[in-house]
């Protein structure tokens, strides 16, 4: 069982990790590199004369290939970890008599996107380099609690009776009622347009990657399980 879980998670995780690296290098990394110009002070928004104008344009992502190779390596690790959680979900729900197919895998992937990316982003938007925010431990605690509450809530909605579904929906709402940790001051150094662009690119690419992760894990899981 462990071998089947491991092989299907690694096959899917490596494939999606590689696609993630390409999508991020194309759509997300340029915003990060551009934001670092503001973080380091080599570009300044709201310069001395108070103008809101600043130059647009990101440094070439090809300047530092070693950095992007590390990003690729970490994408593979992270998507293998997420893939392990999804196949653990497949194994547990199959024990309870639910079938896994590429179609249900796609829904698993979308649910993963909602739990791990979308729900935390409602309280804490993806942050550009240079963003000043509340204490990292508090934010990590809120992030992990939100991910767990949303995943459990979605699981109750998907697999429980309707009363459990209502409880699941309430569970999903709890972290947002509690509220994410925020500061009482804005510190942003980068233009808001750049931040907005980064956030939509981050969430958009994540949605694609999680959908693919659900699809690929289900394809490999159904293939290896019967082998």
């Amino acid at each position: 069982m462990f071998k089947t879980l491991l092989t299907s998670a690694i096959f899917a995780g490596v494939a999606v990790g590689l696609i993630a690296a390409v999508l991020q290098l194309w759509l997300v990394t340029p915003s990060l590199l551009e934001a670092e110009l503001y973080e380091s002070g080599s570009r300044i928004h709201f310069a001395v004369d108070g103008s809101t104008q600043s130059d647009a344009g990101a440094p070439s992502p090809l300047d530092d290939p070693a950095r992007h190779l590390m990003t690729m390596a970490f994408n593979i690790i992270v998507f293998c970890a997420f893939a392990l959680f999804i196949v653990v979900g497949y194994a547990l729900t199959e024990r309870a008599g639910h079938d896994v197919s590429p179609r249900s895998g796609l829904i698993w992937g979308l649910a993963g996107f909602i739990a791990v990316q979308l729900a935390p982003a409602i309280g804490m938007p993806p942050e550009l380099p240079g963003t000043v925010a509340a204490e990292v431990e508090l934010r990590q605690l809120w992030w992990i609690s939100t991910v767990i509450a949303t995943a459990l809530g979605l699981g109750l909605i998907a697999f429980g009776p309707w009363m459990a579904g209502v409880a699941g929906a309430a569970l999903i709402a709890v972290p947002h009622i509690v509220g994410a940790p925020h500061l009482d001051t804005y510190f942003g150094v980068a233009p808001p347009e750049l931040s907005a662009h980064f956030v939509t690119a981050s969430l958009g690419t994540s949605a694609v990657l999680w959908s693919l992760l659900g699809l690929f894990t289900a394809i490999f899981w159904t293939k290896f399980k019967d082998a």
Binding site: V28, M70, A73, C80, L84, V136, W142, S206
Partner: peptide, 28 residues
């Protein structure tokens, strides 16, 4: 795997995982 890649605060881990953490919105 998720803890090592997404949350470990050691600076070596942080620097090498930097862009990936930002892109996936881990609070790092």
């Amino acid at each position: 795997l998720l803890f090592a890649a997404g949350f470990a605060q050691a600076s070596v881990m942080h620097d090498t995982a930097h862009d990936q953490r930002h892109a996936m919105a881990f609070p790092c």
